[in-house]
Simulated scan of single mutants.
Amino acid sequence: MKLCRVPRQGCVLLWALLTQLVLCRSGVFAGDGTKACKLSTETQSERDVLNRLEPLAHKNFTKEIKDKEESYIYVFQLCGDAGGVPGAGVIQRSTKALEKPTVIGLFNSTQAIGGSDWVMLMYRNGDVYDTHCNKEARKAIIMISCSENKDAGELEVILEDRDRQNDCFYLFELDSSAVCPPVQSRLSAGSIILIIGFCLVAVYLIGGFLYQRLIVGAKGMEQFPNYAFWVEVGNLTADGCDFVCRSRNREEAPAYRGVTTDALEEEPEERDDHLLPM
């Protein structure tokens, strides 16, 4: 007996569609992203904060903590089933395989608060305490801070505050670049002036070179626009720099000591008049 009586291509397509439906239902395909999280109070501001965490959606973050003789594994997932537990955002699992995982918070009861470079996520309505905190439901607080060098850092378990009558919570930390403020590139007025200046100089040089070469027919260094003017400016600049910056005396010192420059000057021609023949 054949399981599929349609043509082979149709049977393959049918199986592909059924597999995709199963995967989507199990959360493998995370197309919904942060939309899978249900906010306790649906407001646009909280939804915008939650949307900032879209790169972290449906990723499992685990951390193992050893407490004396016992050790626990914490699993956090944003808007997805943490550790495969339906509806759980954060779970606590003992390393003992037979024990049932403890649900710390559900992602269908989410609260999101954000600042410029941080987001605080709260999952409520976890499993109730047995003896602590008036047997209230557990709550997880995940503090996600900006770290430009990490797409998603390591989950850190800070504390479990259960030594109070109510409002007990588990506190976690996570670093991620997803909550970092966008980098805005702004040019200063000086940068804009420099860019405009460089553009004008480039236009002057290229346009002048083409004009000198194609219209005037200049060759060699004469292709440089206003070559004679710039040569003269360069010479004058060099002379000015030489005059201002050099400290040596411009008169050459005499070769012998005791001989002044006045003695080396020519005497008036009248001194030899008496030697001339009459």
Rank of each mutant, 00 (worst) to 15 (best):
C4L: 15
R5K: 15
V6G: 06
P7L: 12
Q9K: 14
G10Y: 11
L18H: 10
V22Q: 04
V22A: 09
L23W: 07
D32Y: 08
G33Y: 04
L39K: 05
E46S: 11
V49L: 04
L50K: 02
P55L: 03
P55Y: 03
K59Q: 12
K66R: 13
F76R: 00
A82R: 00
P86C: 03
K96F: 05
K100M: 09
N108M: 03
G114N: 02
L121H: 01
M122K: 14
R124D: 02
G126L: 02
D130K: 14
C133I: 06
N134E: 07
K135P: 05
E136V: 07
A137N: 06
R138C: 03
A140E: 01
I141G: 00
I142K: 00
S145K: 10
S147A: 15
E148P: 11
N149Y: 05
A152W: 01
R162S: 12
R162G: 06
D167S: 13
C168H: 08
C180I: 04
P182W: 02
A189H: 13
I195N: 03
I196S: 05
V201A: 13
Y204C: 02
G208Q: 05
F209I: 07
Y211F: 14
Q212R: 11
V216H: 03
Q223R: 15
F224N: 00
N226P: 01
Y227W: 06
Y227T: 10
A228G: 09
V233E: 15
N235K: 13
N249R: 10
R250W: 12
R250P: 02
E252K: 10
A255V: 09
G258H: 07
T260E: 04
P268F: 10
E270F: 07
M278W: 08
